[in-house]
Design a protein around this nucleic acid. Structure first.
Lengths: 118, 118
DNA sequence: TTATCATATACCCATATGGATATGTGTGCC
DNA sequence: GGCACACATATCCATATGGGTATATGATAA
């Protein structure tokens, strides 16, 4: 088996730069495919396919408006990613260093308590 | 051209579930390949290659210790991802809704000022 | 109805995986 | 030196892209 299907996983869907561009563009509000094609400077079929992937992972929603299809951002879909990387934030963010130290100290004390048989 | 090389981009590197598992495991501290092989239940060559990818995007560092190679997490590499998704956080997090409303109001006032000639 | 606009699909193709397996390389132990 | 151990690489292979181009579908305008 090659890589996991990108349509299965938000991480994969968002790993593609063009798709991130699309999402970024949609933070400005609903947009028809047409407009995204111009913004990305990519051919329409490719944009449509990227949008399909984003739809399948729930990162965007569609709405029919005449002969256009308006795509809208569905930010909740990105929450899992945010949750995941946030777990690492304390490892690089100095604002968390003090807290880390405190926790380390507490853990140390616990260990000593156990060691001394409580 | 197919997908952008995973070794080029942290987003791609992290899009692979196994590689996320590796990073998660490394939050506990340095580990030899050996140990990661057991943890992931994946063959050693595959683990080595995932580690190579992670090294190439700077997500992990290596250190030689006798005949072992100890891999260590390099959390800063994940910061770009965190920065990117954080830009979306206000779109789903209700704690930001009030702030958004305020900003929207301010923007509204600006627009009216412009409209009135100012 | 027919032509046209806005999209979505269908293919084709080159390329990048990821896993499996075999083998190369460096280090410590006898 | 010779061998086992811990990893890293090299190949092979099936599969999943992503872009390019042609075409189908749906709605609206003429």
């Amino acid at each position: 088996m090659a890589r996991a299907a990108t349509t299965t996983d938000t991480f994969n869907a968002v790993a593609e730069p063009r798709r991130r561009e699309i999402l970024d563009a949609l933070t400005q509000g609903e947009r028809p495919v047409n407009e995204l094609v111009e913004l990305l400077g990519l051919a329409q079929p490719q944009v449509s396919r990227h949008l399909r992937v984003l739809r399948e992972v729930g990162a965007v929603d569609v709405r029919d408006e005449g002969r256009q299809r308006l795509y809208r951002l569905n930010p909740q879909a990105l929450k899992p990613i945010h949750d995941w990387v946030s777990g690492y934030q304390h490892l690089w963010d100095e604002r968390f260093e003090l807290l880390d130290d405190v926790l380390a100290d507490l853990k140390q004390e616990d260990t000593q308590d156990e060691g001394s048989g409580q």
